[in-house]
Amino acid sequence: MADALIVVVLLLVAASATAAVAQRDPARQALVLSFLGTLLAALFTVLQAPDVGLSQLAVGSALTPLLIMLCVRKIRRRGRSKEDAR
């Protein structure tokens, strides 16, 4: 019966990974990736691997979204300044 929990989390991981790939805009993809990161940490905990889950939480909850959103901001700023200079 404890397998039911593993199946539930695995189905959610499959669905959210597909959703992450199906997003087109990087900012929206960053949101889905943040959710996927936390979900993966839960999956690793359910599979009795808390060290890996802790690494996943540390990196995927704040660091990866921050890196992606900073890149998105840089690209938007460059686009905006090129329009202003024209």
Partner: peptide
């Protein structure tokens, strides 16, 4: 559970 890598990332964040 934890260690150098996990704690380092948390401190930097």
């Amino acid at each position: 559970p934890g260690g150098g890598f996990q704690g380092g990332v948390v401190a930097a964040t």
